[in-house]
Amino acid sequence: MIRLILVIAALLLLTLLLLPIQLVCLAFGLQLQRTIPHLYHRALCALIGVRIRQVGQRRRGPMLILSNHVSWLDICVISALTPVVFIAKSEVARWPVFGWLARLQRTVFIDRQARHRTGAATQEIGDRLLDGDAVVLFAEGTSSDGTRVLPFRSALIGAVHHALGASTQQQAIAVQPMSVAYTGLGGLPIGRELRERVAWYGDADLMPHLLGILSAGAIDVTISWGDAVATEISADRKQIARDAEAAVRRMTAAARRGAAASGPI
């Protein structure tokens, strides 16, 4: 309980310190608006006790990152590694506190129930790519328990096509697959009995899960980067999704095998 109180107090102080800086950066379009969320989440992961191991090389510069999705904690982990923009479902924008924080990170919100709005969302994502952002798309369309990778959806990958069609200078935009695999909790390898303490999916309530994470202690996660592919406007978005899904499946399985090799699950 004492640990939980101290972590929450530190997070509140950190938020109050960085909030006015980020608001000014957003208001004046300063480059620092990309860096503040990155620093915020690095500090947040340190406070929570998240230990990140990276496998492979992440590409620098603007790109579309296609990832699996396990927990709300994925946002903190990925953003702690590099400045990124996330794509989130429109409901997140209405969440108390968390929707507000997502806006501060320049999140692109999409309405998955309104198919006719996909084009506008794709255009906004494409604009972010042309502005130099690395954009993270959780391509499964939802979170899972982390034991398997769900099929990747291809609709929003059309953002690459929009970006190339709107640009007179860029002939290709990088697409890079990325795997998120939680491998340890409190010094123990994560098996099925511990997985739900980290994974947040289905109808699980956010606040109890959040408090559980904040009080859990050390959390080990492996972020694996696949090969970045320079994607041209003629590329098939469905093939892009299939290739990225296959890469993420391989990387996730490898991360879990590595965790199993270090101790019993």
Results as ranks from 00 to 15, higher is better:
Gln33Glu: 12
Arg34Trp: 11
Leu39Ser: 02
Tyr40Met: 06
His41Asn: 13
Arg42Tyr: 03
Ala43Cys: 13
Ala43Tyr: 08
Ala46His: 12
Arg51Thr: 06
Ile52Phe: 02
Arg53Gly: 11
Gln54Ser: 08
Gln57Ile: 14
Gln57Leu: 15
Gly61Trp: 11
Pro62His: 09
Met63Trp: 00
Ile65Asn: 07
Leu66Gly: 03
Ser67Cys: 10
His69Phe: 01
Leu73Arg: 00
Leu73Val: 05
Asp74Ala: 11
Cys76Asn: 12
Ser79Met: 14
Val85Tyr: 00
Val85Pro: 01
Phe86Cys: 03
Phe86Thr: 02
Ile87Phe: 08
Lys89Cys: 14
Glu91Gly: 01
Val92Glu: 12
Val92Asn: 07
Val97Ser: 03
Thr107Trp: 05
Val108Phe: 00
Phe109Trp: 13
Phe109Asp: 04
Phe109Arg: 00
Ile110Phe: 11
Asp111Thr: 09
Arg112Asp: 06
Arg112Tyr: 04
Thr122Asn: 08
Thr122Tyr: 09
Gln123Ala: 15
Gly126Phe: 14
Gly126Arg: 08
Leu129Glu: 07
Leu129Thr: 05
Leu130Val: 04
Asp131Trp: 04
Gly132Arg: 05
Val135Asn: 03
Val136Cys: 11
Val136Ser: 09
Leu137Cys: 05
Glu140Tyr: 06
Thr147Leu: 15
Arg148Trp: 11
Val149Gln: 01
Val149Ala: 01
Ala155Asp: 10
Leu156Trp: 00
Ile157Val: 14
Ile157Phe: 07
Gly158Lys: 04
